[in-house]
Write a protein that binds this DNA or RNA. Sequence first.
DNA 1: AAGTGGTCTAGACCACGGC
DNA 2: CCGTGGTCTAGACCACTTC
Lengths: 239, 239
Amino acid sequence: MTQTGNGTPAYQRIQSGILELIRTGELKPGDVVESERELAKIHGVSLMTARHALTELEREGAVVRKRGTGTFVAPPKIHFNKLMSFTEQMASRGLPEYSKVLSARVIEREAEIAARLLLSPQQSLLKLERLRQGSGEPFALETCYLSAEKYSGLVNAPLQRASLFSILEKQYGLQIAYADEEIDAIAAEARTAQLLSVARGSPLLRIRQVIYSASGFREIYVLGLYRADRHVLNVRRFR
Amino acid sequence: MTQTGNGTPAYQRIQSGILELIRTGELKPGDVVESERELAKIHGVSLMTARHALTELEREGAVVRKRGTGTFVAPPKIHFNKLMSFTEQMASRGLPEYSKVLSARVIEREAEIAARLLLSPQQSLLKLERLRQGSGEPFALETCYLSAEKYSGLVNAPLQRASLFSILEKQYGLQIAYADEEIDAIAAEARTAQLLSVARGSPLLRIRQVIYSASGFREIYVLGLYRADRHVLNVRRFR
DNA sequence: AAGTGGTCTAGACCACGGC
DNA sequence: CCGTGGTCTAGACCACTTC
């Protein structure tokens, strides 16, 4: 008797159940999760199916399994390698944040940048230059480039208030998936130094990122220059 | 009749077989991998077991599965967020590499660094300072700190020739798992500038990493200073 | 000894893709 | 239509941890 119930697979329903308990705080990090056999019985499912559910949850880092002992809620996740907008980053640290839009306009014939987005060299681009401030001090200079064709409406968007990510996600239905970043350091040249209130030649962290949509397209190119004395990047690398 | 053969699980043997074909080039990116049913028959194993093997290979990024179509060798992996030693990095790019050991000795009372390894402030540390050169030019200055108690033998290890990682893995049985890195930029001070053959005040990429063993302990602290004009860091971040 | 996760079997039905 | 991967069953034995 296979009782699939609704359309969602049984193993996913089991996962949702556990994730819900974690989300609501009913299960805290370190707490025991029901064993495979218990889950199988409760959900009226075979052992393999219950196992499947836990295997995926472990892979996602939600739980930890210990042979001979049980399955436990994983320690609070550290948000390493998470792609967050400036706004989100500041919010997650509880810091006040402010962005000044220096320019938002359409540019033409920027072949090099178009190439990074895999667009043809003549294609026009939307260029968005913002000075990021945190705790009242200038912090970073971020220049975003997007296809002008797709995102022309952004020129008049309330970027002063809302985060670019949230506008793209909500208004344009863009599903941001990941970003590849190139990180190095450069010396501040005159204009940048002045905008960021640092001396000319001061070391800046330069982050060039290509942001990909869930469907695999290159959607945004961002050139970020960060005051090294105000910014540390956190990365986790695996062997 | 369960024929396990040797000690390794069947699904791992199936994985090794496929990975070997990929490694030797017998299977190239885009090629079809044997179907679940074929694998099950060939290896005299049930369908679930063959599936398990492919599921893990897909998770690791070695293959891609397409419902209704088949399983294919994944496109060449991009080594994002991979923890590699300097030696490995240079080798993977086919570049000649050379390291000069500037010092290798035991130091005492370096409370701040001991703290990063969660050791007591008085504990003595092994300090290993190396100048990394690639293509004949100085490239980076790397200073490693390890527990002197555990790794005292390293003082006399052939670090000129073998990579620190490989010595730790082979001789000390250390299983390196991952590293958390703090990345920022600083201006080169006198000694560093001289060693790296750059002007004083040049921007350097500073990477401070804590390397963890598979059992979760903090094993190595590395302070790396990289010439920004010779080094770009690649990172992938996920939403 | 009892309970846990790890591996595995020999089937089954479904949804999807290509022909 | 046929072959593919996706989901699932109702058991089984093993290795490990805890008591």
